[in-house]
Design a protein around this nucleic acid. Structure first.
Lengths: 340, 340
DNA sequence: AGCGGCGGTGGTAACGGTTACACTTTTGTA
DNA sequence: TACAAAAGTGTAACCGTTACCACCGCCGCT
């Protein structure tokens, strides 16, 4: 356990001052003679010197790290988002501090707090919907916040990257309508999230446009996590007038809903056509393969990191941006024409 | 964008010295009068003061962060491991810096490098198998390394948390043998990983104990990522003497293998009995539900964090520990007696 | 009365970088 | 040749926190 070399060790060994070493390290901050640079680089190599991030961050607010606050890594959607974000960040020489909220605003609050102490320059987050004041404070402290997948209306000054949730829900709904379904149910996320609200709005609009009124008993706004999907399905199928089409809002909900559907031996798509949000490796492995709304995770990640890092480096125009990317509708076999 | 309060602001406002504030902050480092403490706490609250992690880390190697170097977040096993690690770490007041290697030793090397600059006190990692010298250097620099899920034999000084991979493979194999299968194939990870090696060893042992010799053409050591599983399946099923049992080593491999099996319209378990490593939410949703070896992710995460944080706080005995947790064998419908 | 110990407090040198500024040398131009 | 500008380098002051040490009373002992 020898202690690591410092910039002063390098300076001494190379016979120059620390200032020169620093300039070599951060290329472009000042002139350094070609020959001197070579010598310094050599010593750095030899001593295996690595500048300490902590010291650097202390000095200026440069910050080589971004915070990533996700709802739930057990959800493949967020996991793959994290995967892509970490990859994109690495490509830009940025580290990622990961935190999860489990959709709990208290844990979210805690995460924001720690992120303040930690001097991250930017935060990419999927907000739970609460903690408006805390997010605002983070912004006021000079941290660049980028919301991904969801947003908070009361915070217009933060960047947002997401799909058109209302449109996507509308497309999914119209798909079922076009197949002849009349009674269509929707299992969505909590209305405290923009995702939940927007999708329900899109659903209602599509139904309205088709001259149908969306029966409120057919709309279930349930938590994104947990197994509430099962009970929602049971409730829906217990209705006197069963829906023949069902749209489900996220992977965890799909899992529990699908399990219940199988338990109840309901025929898909014979008795019930299914369209679900978020594509996964396994959506095409189950029987029947699921018709899905696929979010372009790569795009979400890329734009988020672009914004987060861009603002960090100050290379972006001032006004906050709201980037919308296109979701893709992938038809498989879980949705079919209504078998009268 | 007001700038955050510093310890000096608090000291001034409370009419005490910075030393006192520091003592209040880090309880137990020295005496503080009850009344003074109350006043300081009050000011901290009022000024909304948060100590800056960077300054702290610079001062001493306290380090409130651990690095988490995972192979691939797109793999649900690692994603859920990350989820649990982040949760456990938070409970201990520790942040997680996340990096991924994509099973590429170059990216792993890069990750180790960044982790050196970043002053993390511990690193939890799933090593690719290479970079032995770099890991050694990290250890020598005083960073506590904990390998999880896999290990590197040449590095006996690091902690390890994993299942008994050889035993698990043996159990899986014996299960198929007991069902009457004679020709059993094994799709495993690269032999450069301990996981790959150990499982193959367990497989061979089980076969040997049953008086059968493991045909090398029935063993495919393929990458953990990507779609090589499909081709492996094709190769196996093209053999003159088809295997009737197959064990698959990780989720990505299962996905590609299963897709090919379905494409080829092979009946599971009629023609081919399947046992796979790692349980996922969807393993019981596919048809037929898969017989799996379930790794206790919670235990892996908990012990990893325990070790990482314990060493950080110096509250652990010196000698490196190798913790083995029990994998669980879950029988479902993808494995059945050989229907000769 | 003298003295050691201790509770409570303040002063200040690190920690390892960056950077403003001063200084010296080289280069360019009339 | 003279002199300004630019290139190259060094010095030292930060950044925010902790830890060591000195200091001051006050208590309880011998």
């Amino acid at each position: 356990m020898r202690k690591a070399a410092t910039i002063r060790d390098v300076a001494r060994e190379a016979g120059v001052s620390v200032a020169v070493v620093s300039r070599v390290l951060n290329d472009g901050t000042g002139p350094v003679a070609q020959q001197t640079r070579a010598r310094v680089v050599d010593v750095i190599e030899r001593l295996d010197y690595r500048p300490r991030a902590a010291a650097r961050e202390l000095q200026q607010r440069s910050a080589t790290a971004v915070g990533l606050v996700l709802a739930d890594l057990a959800n493949p959607f967020f996991a793959r988002l994290a995967d892509r974000v970490v990859g994109e960040a690495r490509a830009r020489g940025i580290h990622v501090v990961l935190l999860t909220t489990l959709e709990d605003s208290h844990l979210e609050a805690e995460s924001i707090e720690t992120l303040i102490g930690r001097s991250v320059g930017s935060v990419i987050a999927t907000p739970t919907g609460g903690n408006v004041d805390r997010w605002a404070r983070l912004v006021e402290l000079g941290v660049n916040v980028v919301f991904v997948d969801r947003e908070i209306d009361e915070l217009p000054e933060v960047d947002v990257v997401a799909i058109h949730n209302d449109l996507s829900a509308e497309v999914a709904t119209r798909h079922l309508l076009d197949l002849g379904h009349e009674r269509i149910a929707f299992i969505s996320g909590p209305l405290s999230t923009s995702t939940g609200r927007d999708r329900v709005a899109g659903f209602k609009r599509a139904m309205g446009n088709a001259g149908k009124v969306a029966d409120d008993r057919l709309i279930h706004a349930i938590p994104f996590r947990g197994d509430a999907g099962g009970d929602a399905v049971s409730a829906l199928l217990a209705l006197p007038n069963r829906p023949t089409g069902l749209i489900v809002g996220n992977t965890a909900q799909v899992r529990s809903a699908l399990r219940r559907v199988k338990q109840m031996a309901v025929d898909v798509p014979g008795e019930l056509s299914l369209v679900v949000f978020d594509d996964n490796p396994w959506t095409e492995l189950v029987s029947p393969p699921l018709t899905v709304v696929r979010q372009p995770i790569d795009m979400l990640a890329m734009h988020s990191v672009d914004l987060a890092v861009g603002r960090l480096r100050g290379s972006l125009p001032e006004p906050p941006r709201r980037i919308r990317v296109e979701a893709e509708f992938v038809q498989r076999s879980s949705s079919a024409p209504r078998s009268s």
